[in-house]
């Protein structure tokens, strides 16, 4: 499995080192997050070696959620070398995410 579960301490270094990253902010009590999870896992495999696909649990890492202004979950943030350039809020089909990734690879 290529998916990374990131903690606050390691977050910055991990996303800065990645030319392209996609981070899914989620929580265990969030139904739509559970629905999105298989899609994110499939994308992690599909883009293995090209995109850092990561997950952040907002209950365990509230500082990260606050730093990114996450106010609704799931929120998926896209970053280039650590800088956010796009985000998708709410449950969406895989195509919404691949469109962003493919045009930024």
């Amino acid at each position: 499995m290529a998916i990374k579960h990131l903690k606050t301490a390691e977050f910055e270094a991990a996303v800065e080192a990645a030319p392209l990253a996609m981070v899914d902010f989620w929580a265990s009590w969030c139904g739509p997050c559970k629905m999105l999870s298989p899609t994110v896992e499939a994308l992690a495999e599909q883009y293995e070696g090209k995109v850092l696909v990561a997950k952040v649990n907002v209950d365990e890492e509230p500082e990260l959620a606050r730093a990114f202004g996450v106010m609704s979950i799931p929120t998926v943030v896209f970053l280039k070398n650590g800088r956010e350039f796009d985000r998708k809020v709410g449950l969406m089909p895989a195509g919404a995410f691949t469109a962003v990734l493919d045009s930024n690879l």
Partner: peptide, 12 residues
């Protein structure tokens, strides 16, 4: 929407 507006109290 997603930046303070939500449709679900139990979710967010």
């Amino acid at each position: 929407l997603g930046r303070g507006v939500s449709y679900c109290a139990t979710c967010d």
